[in-house]
Nucleic acid binder design. Structure first.
Lengths: 338, 338
DNA sequence: CTGAAAGCGCTTACAG
DNA sequence: CTGAAAGCGCTTACAG
């Protein structure tokens, strides 16, 4: 393989001069810079990443820990991954994608071996076992998802409380007085998916404050089952006029359920979801929704992480916990109840 | 950080002995091995990946080039990625996920800088511009998807010809005499998505051989548009009794289209798709289908790649081009025409 | 503005 | 069975 030594020889300079000419870390005569650049081009020189990382303790790689859990809807995950990946590339970093079932040991592996400069955690749970190791790691970490203890970590998440309030308020303003909130399965809460109850509790509080009825229910996240659950739900609350959905699988299943029941939105029922616009397009969902902004959250996490990696923010500087304010995207599925 | 030097010191041996004790590449007295292992444990030693790769020219990382094209249905891609990632981990490799729009330069970047030991290409086109660089690369490559020229590359793909024949034969045997085949958009073919016409041509040939009518059409891969296309199609061919679908977005949109038209399968129409079982579950698709086996294809590609990387197959050994025989998964959406 | 040299943390012939 | 040393390909103080 062609090394910087070959470049140096071809340019008639020392290896250090060749290196500096490429990095620009000290002034170089135009003549030399020109010859070095030419040598690089003709020899097709590319620095060896392993050698560089050994010398600089920098890999220019970010570890991305994504878990594909049974109780979660895989297509919704993809948006976060793409948001992280695209922003990382923009900032000059590559992505080491880790999908191990055992996230903790995977984290340790890539961190301790210095394969990466920083770590993004997706799918963060209330008491995420990965966090202890992340805090102990040499590399900075950024989370998408809010754990109980954010100490020492930069955290980005949708403001699910605000999302819950907005959903209730929006339908309340339109005149609705009895609503149903469909959340992720109980199972998601059990393993620490705090966003489920963060949204739900805020929605319940808002409903109480406005003195309206809010039925809450946990629905499955797998497709055949969730359709049945939706039907049961509509049977159980025939007087409810609005449906709030914090469950991607339920949102995806709803169009055919409504169709089967001969219901149309917003005439018979107002519907308001919580998912990304990309998700809505993929599944052709005609419901207004709270934008969950996965690409933006992934991007924010990476930007902050890179600032830490590159020392723009010192390790002593306090961690940030940033909530994205939920936007409501109107697709015309809400209206006053009839 | 703790190095192998620290381990050696703690165990009272030389660095080379410590290294050999860990790699097992030469015999070591039990006493020494014990002390070394103990030192590793107490010091929490993990080898530095960059240093190791510099010394061994091995990174234990596989590059995964995935393109997310507008004309393709993103959720269908995820299965390939997961298949590759999980198998790689099983074999001791990590995944560098590259989603750059410019796949060619991304390939060059990770290859020339020796960040990876081998490369998996997803979404391979008929004349894929990435292939020239892959052939010139130092690292072996494996493809998921069949290009025109497979020379020097290991290739894995579904047998789309057989898939096309099977689809036609299956409905022919049931007594159907007029079918419609819905393919990906023309656009996919234009940029080299050979699988579209591989399936279609084989289906046409099979239809001709059996003397039945097969209407073919390219439908959009985006959701609102594809629904309209399906409706037009059913309007245009009212006497057709069977629908073959080689277009994930069309398959996802079909249930509601059928519902709107008051059609049920297989009573009014027999439907046979081509997508993965995982995809069917995610979208709750009730149609029988040809399994596209993305996880299996991804896994096969990685296994072959690792065999090349680890020298079990020499570079002079001929490349393989392997087709997965399509299985038909019966979900009860086909029956004799009425 | 440039060069010779040390060092990053490993592995692996070479010697014994 | 074990050790001293060279080398992988970079970067970066240290000297001039």
């Amino acid at each position: 393989m062609v090394t910087i030594g070959d470049v140096a020889k071809a340019a008639g300079v020392s290896r250090s001069t060749a290196s500096y000419a490429l990095s620009g870390k000290r002034s170089i005569s135009d003549a030399v810079r020109l010859r070095v650049n030419e040598a690089v081009k003709t020899l097709q020189y590319t620095p060896n990443a392993g050698a560089r990382s050994l010398a600089t303790s920098q890999t220019k790689v970010i570890g991305l820990l994504a878990q594909f859990l049974d109780d979660e809807f895989a297509p919704a995950m993809l948006q976060y991954i793409l948001g992280v990946s695209n922003t990382a590339r923009e900032l000059g970093y590559d992505i080491l994608l880790v999908t191990d079932a055992d996230g903790t040991s995977a984290l340790r592996r890539i961190s301790d071996s210095r394969m990466i400069d920083g770590i993004v955690l997706l799918n963060v749970a209330e008491n995420d076992p990965r966090l202890d190791h992340l805090r102990a790691a040499q590399q900075p970490g950024a989370l998408v998802g809010l754990p109980k203890d954010c100490d020492g970590l930069d955290v980005f998440d949708l403001d699910f409380e605000e999302a819950g309030r907005t959903m209730v308020d929006h339908l309340h303003r339109l005149g609705h007085r009895e609503l149903i909130l469909i959340s992720q399965p109980q199972h998601v809460i059990d393993r620490g998916g705090a966003y489920v109850w963060r949204l739900q509790n805020a929605a319940l509080a808002a409903a109480e404050a406005r003195n309206i009825t809010l039925h809450t229910v946990f629905a499955p996240s797998s497709q055949p089952a969730v359709g049945d659950a939706l039907n049961e739900l509509l049977d159980a609350h025939p007087t409810a006029t609005g449906l709030l959905i914090n469950n991607e699988a339920a949102a995806a299943a709803l169009p055919s359920v409504l169709h089967e029941r001969g219901l149309s939105t917003p005439k018979d029922l107002s519907v308001l979801g919580r998912y990304s616009d990309e998700f809505a397009r993929t599944f052709s969902l005609p419901f207004s929704s709270i934008e969950s902004a996965p690409d933006r959250l992934g991007s924010m996490a990476v930007r902050q992480l890179v600032r830490r990696i590159e020392g723009e923010i010192g390790p002593e500087e306090p961690n940030v916990v940033r909530f994205v304010t939920p936007d409501l995207i109107d697709r015309g599925s809400t209206a006053p109840p009839r």
